[in-house]
Design a protein around this nucleic acid. Sequence first.
DNA 1: AGCCTACATTGGACATTGTCCAAGTCAAGA
DNA 2: TCTTGACTTGGACAATGTCCAATGTAGGCT
Lengths: 138, 138
Amino acid sequence: MSDLLERLRDRGWRLTAQRRVVAEVLDGDHVHYTADEVHARATDRLPEIARATVYNTLSELVALGEVLEVSTDGRAKRYDPNARHTHQHLVCSRCGTIRDVHPTGDPLAALPENERYGFAIADATVTYRGVCPNCTGS
Amino acid sequence: MSDLLERLRDRGWRLTAQRRVVAEVLDGDHVHYTADEVHARATDRLPEIARATVYNTLSELVALGEVLEVSTDGRAKRYDPNARHTHQHLVCSRCGTIRDVHPTGDPLAALPENERYGFAIADATVTYRGVCPNCTGS
DNA sequence: AGCCTACATTGGACATTGTCCAAGTCAAGA
DNA sequence: TCTTGACTTGGACAATGTCCAATGTAGGCT
């Protein structure tokens, strides 16, 4: 993530304090914050950053392919900075924790031609659901 | 779906006109309506049915395992009456059309033990995305 | 270094989707 | 047919996301 800002500037992005802070908040492994969580963490560093700016910046990062949008629960979308290595998600059905996982094989290959209804299929996402170790005992 | 109401009555469900109408709206193949779409169609048959009743009924059908909740786009949840045969979804990235599909193999088997982080995994859902034949030319 | 200006940010109104609750209604057993 | 507890209603509220006019500023130009 450290060179993300450089890459974006090369693509014509203006480097503002707000965008820098949003990018910093998203830095890390297994990060899957909602827009409001990003906003809360960004506010710690830049108190007056607007909610709309966080939404705008996240949408731009998604459009540029630098961040993935994940909706595992039909509630708020989550933002995953690990867009450069394809992966899938493992979600705890109790607490909502999300981990990035790497299944073997290609799920696309599992869909027979006669089940494709003439679609030009671009990708497949897999969501595993279960109970995480922290929640098992409760 | 025709005997759904019988099954539910056997489980102690009160058979009201509203619930009957919601069940009728959900009858069919490749049906994936949002709650508001269900409400609109239900209103055609029973003009004064309340939105809250539709939400209640859909939640109950999901809790009873008779209907699946699908969130493919992070917007409104969709309701899939085909809960009795496991299947996955193929979504058009332009128009949002959804088809039920049946990939071969078990996606669970593709997740290695060292990628499970101690979770007790219960299931895996796969979403295929692509452009449908209707949208290909546009 | 200072100016310009197109692009970015702000804050608040608005939209969409979903939840909750108190009051009224009704399905179905006795 | 009566009764009662479950169901429905309508509207207020909550959570998440979008839009826009006014204001601010990054970065190129001189």
